[in-house]
Design a protein around this nucleic acid. Structure first.
Lengths: 222, 222
DNA sequence: GACTGTGAATAGTTTCACAGCC
DNA sequence: GGCTGTGAAACTATTCACAGTC
């Protein structure tokens, strides 16, 4: 392989902040501003201004000294970097409470994602509708993933089903998984898995609550 | 309180992995194992073994060289550190699809969290029931938070309502917020805010999809 | 004068590698 | 011999501070 000129190594930490900047920029445009400085962006996103500038500098030099960043251009560059200039077809597996809520969520369309299929293992749920889609049986995953060219799957099944569902999805060619099930998923390195875990988040919050309590107790008795 | 000898500074990165270890340890117990080595824990959690050991060493020295960690003891130590030896009362604000799904989620009880109140701004939803609780109006937040001693709130409202709801919660004394709304929340430093953002997660997955595509294209044309 | 872009300094995290204990 | 606990090394990320540009 020929090594491309651009070093193309955006740090992970930066990647995870780009969606935030993008959202802020949408707000900034809606307020009619054409340019924005790193200071303002920092203020609105709760990120240190130097960090904002460094993050954005990984995309290339799209700012103007003395002026700031042109909002439209910056939005485009971030979108391009995040691969949002194309549409990705998304499948949701698991049509329980959460799967149902996700299927009805309106936020997908506005930014490059399109829910293209719903799956469940339960025959009694197959055929139900949400957002103009019929729930299909998970046995149909291989055919539907291929037909609809699905790249991203959201797992919203119970914990016990998650690993098997993931394997079926991966076998069918899915390369990205967002896992809402409270269960670790094993996947080969070429598949990206991200997890969203309510219980983990609450436990982390609990840690900081507990620590605050301990600090206050210490202060009170000093 | 006397200041304890232990320096008590568990790194954030470690804190965010403790819930994972805890979940793995539950599985290990269920399989009847009394002890577990860092290698096995590493294997099951997808974390490097040295990292497991370093993480656990922040809790104190609870392992035995040549043997491993006693599972029960380790679970207790992690739970204690995470503040899970007490119950936390949780409120859910926003009784739309997602709030509904969260209110019916069974996973809370098993690990120290108890949903103690549901709120919505919409009068037509007030009075609806889920999981044995009636939805109350958000004007009741101050009274209910105090009465039920609620420490953690989950925001599951539309984006536009999130900041105002957060402020009401914080004014009422809530110290931890888990935000599901696609909107940044501003809060004073003594309040912990964590966010769960579907759209952000999908965009991050999109970045890695896009990058893989680019790498493959480059390889194909070498 | 305002603001970006970035080296250099600092802080935080991961991984290595091995001494020490069971 | 197996496995923990941890300094030291390597890596990653954040922040500072300022030269360079408009």
């Amino acid at each position: 392989m020929v090594r491309v000129a651009k070093p193309r190594t955006i740090p992970e930490a930066t990647v995870s902040r780009l969606p935030l900047y993008l959202r802020i920029l949408v707000e900034v445009t809606e307020q009619g501003n054409k340019t924005v400085s790193s200071d303002v962006l920092a203020e609105l996103s709760g990120v240190n201004a130097a960090k904002v500038r460094k993050d954005l500098s990984y995309l290339g030099s799209y700012g103007t000294r003395g002026v700031g960043y042109e909002v439209e251009l910056l939005m485009f560059q971030i979108s391009r970097e995040l691969g949002l200039t194309q549409d990705w077809a998304v499948a949701i597996v698991g049509f329980g409470n959460l799967g149902h809520a996700l299927a009805n969520y309106k936020g997908f369309g506005e930014r490059g994602f399109r829910v293209a299929a719903l799956f469940d293992v339960d025959e009694s749920k197959v055929g139900e509708q949400a957002g103009g889609l019929k729930v299909q049986h998970i046995d149909d995953i291989p055919a539907v993933v291929k037909e609809k060219n699905i790249s991203i799957a959201i797992i919203a099944t119970p914990a016990l089903a998650a690993q098997e569902v993931a394997e079926r999805l991966i076998d069918a060619g899915v390369k990205s998984i967002l896992n809402f099930a409270p269960q670790l998923i094993n996947a080969p390195p070429e598949v990206s898995v991200r997890k969203v875990d309510l219980s983990t988040e609450l436990q982390i919050l609990s840690f900081y609550l507990e620590r605050t309590k301990a600090l206050e107790a210490a202060r009170a008795s000093k």
